[in-house]
Design a protein around this nucleic acid. Sequence first.
DNA 1: GCCAACGTTGGC
DNA 2: GCCAACGTTGGC
Length: 155
Amino acid sequence: MKSEPDEASIDDALAADKQTVAWTGVRNYQARNFMRDQMQIGDGVLFYHSGCARPGIAGIAQVASNSYPDPTQFDPKSPYHDPKSSPDHPRWLLVDVRALKKIRLIGLPELRAEAELADMLVLRRGNRLSITPVTTREWCHIVGKIANVKEVLTE
DNA sequence: GCCAACGTTGGC
DNA sequence: GCCAACGTTGGC
């Protein structure tokens, strides 16, 4: 899951109440559908920093709720306000994400250098989706590169 | 700041 | 339903 660290970084998430943040602002149907249809509580999340000097995986997190309507869509003062959405028929959903651990930044050059990660959707040329699924193989490969990560992974 | 890539919008 | 124009993303 991508986030701009200026807006919501892994540090921000770790500092939040229960280390949990609501993943507001997703305004892409495919990304929304991943949260609605694919994610389950407890699923592992790679917390990716984008739109910054050193983009890459900055932390490990987990899905902490089922999907529910993103409140920012109803707030006229929010940059994520969607006048075409209504509480009766909410268009945009989010999940809560619990940060588990900040890791050494695994930057894009390192990710691209790994043959095991060659098919990762987030690395695809032209990919603009802020949420992409990760295969078990990709997950295990990345987690295997991180020191002292077992303590935060329960399954 | 540039630009490739892609999603969305809206006229027809 | 097509598709050109436009806006956004995001790495560089």
